Simulated assay, not measured.
Amino acid sequence: MSADEASDALNQVYAAKSEAELAVAYAAWSNGYDRETAALGYCLPFVIAAWVARHVPVEAGPLLDAGCGSGLSGPYLAALGYQDIDGLDMSSEMLALARGRGVYRNLVEAALGARLPLADGAYAAVLSTGVFTEGHAPASSLDDMARIVRPGGALIFTVRDSVLDKGGFRAKFTELESAGRWARIEESPSFRAFAVAEPAVTVKAFVFRVRQP
C-alpha cells in the first residue's frame, strides 16, 4: 500500500463520529495497520518510551498501555527493562495483534472515556499515545486514568495540537490540578506524529504526577 492509501485509512479513522464507527474503522484497518502506519512514519508508539524511561523507574511496578492498539509500544518498553505491562484497547482485533507481541501481561477490551474495569491505584504509570486526537478518546478520559495510577505514579500521554483547546484538554488539565489530583511535570514542544507523511499532524507529550487523594 502506498503512503497515500495508508493516509486514506488514517483519515477514515479520524472521520469516525462515534465509538462504534471508530471500532469498525480500526477493525477494518487492523490487518494492515502496522505495515501502513510504518509507511507513514508513525513514531508515537516508539518515542513515548523515552518519557516513560525518564520518569518511571524500571522497578516502580506495573504499567498500563492505554489505547495500546496493535501493541507497538510493548516490545520497546520490554527492551528497556519494564516487565509487567498491561494493554487496554476498544478493538478486539487490535488486541489480538497486541497479544501476538508476547510482552503484555494482561489485555483488557475497554474504551477510554467511561469507568475502566481496573482497580484504583493499580499501576505505577499509565501511558497513552495517539488516542487523544481527532474523533478519538475525550478529555474526560483523564479522570479515570488518574484514578488507576497509584499516588506518586505518572500519567504520560500525547495530545494532538488541534484538540488541545477545542477538545477541552487544557481545561481538564487545570481542573485536575486545581482539585489536587495531579501536578504537571513536563510538557514537550510540539512535534510531528508522522516522520514521513501527514506533516500537519503535530502533538505534545505531557507528564503528570498523581497526588494522594
Rank of each mutant, 00 (worst) to 15 (best):
S2Q: 04
A3Y: 06
D4P: 03
E5K: 12
A6E: 02
D8A: 14
A9K: 14
A9W: 14
L10W: 14
N11F: 12
Q12A: 14
V13S: 12
A15Q: 11
A15C: 03
A20C: 12
L22R: 15
A25H: 08
Y26A: 11
W29E: 08
N31W: 05
D34N: 13
E36N: 13
A38C: 10
P45C: 01
F46M: 05
V47H: 00
I48H: 00
V52C: 05
A53T: 08
P57W: 07
E59R: 15
E59C: 15
A60I: 11
G61L: 09
G61A: 08
G61S: 04
G69R: 03
G71S: 01
S73Q: 00
G74S: 05
P75C: 08
L77G: 05
A78E: 09
L80R: 07
L80I: 02
Y82K: 11
Q83L: 06
D84A: 14
D84P: 03
D86H: 04
G87Q: 00
D89F: 06
M90S: 12
M90Q: 12
S91F: 00
E93M: 07
A96W: 06
L97E: 10
N106D: 13
N106I: 03
L107E: 04
L107H: 04
E109V: 08
A110I: 07
L112P: 00
A114R: 12
L116T: 08
A119M: 09
D120V: 09
V126A: 05
S128T: 02
S128Y: 05
T129L: 07
T129H: 03
G130W: 02
F132M: 06
A137I: 06
A137S: 13
P138M: 05
D144V: 05
R150I: 11
P151G: 09
I156M: 09
F157I: 04
T158V: 11
R160P: 00
D161N: 11
S162Y: 12
S162H: 11
S162K: 08
G168Y: 05
R170N: 09
K172N: 03
L176G: 07
E177Q: 15
E177R: 13
S178T: 13
A179V: 08
G180K: 06
I185L: 14
E187F: 07
S188G: 07
P189L: 15
F194G: 00
V201Y: 03
V203D: 03
F206S: 02
V207R: 01
R209Q: 15
V210N: 09
V210T: 15
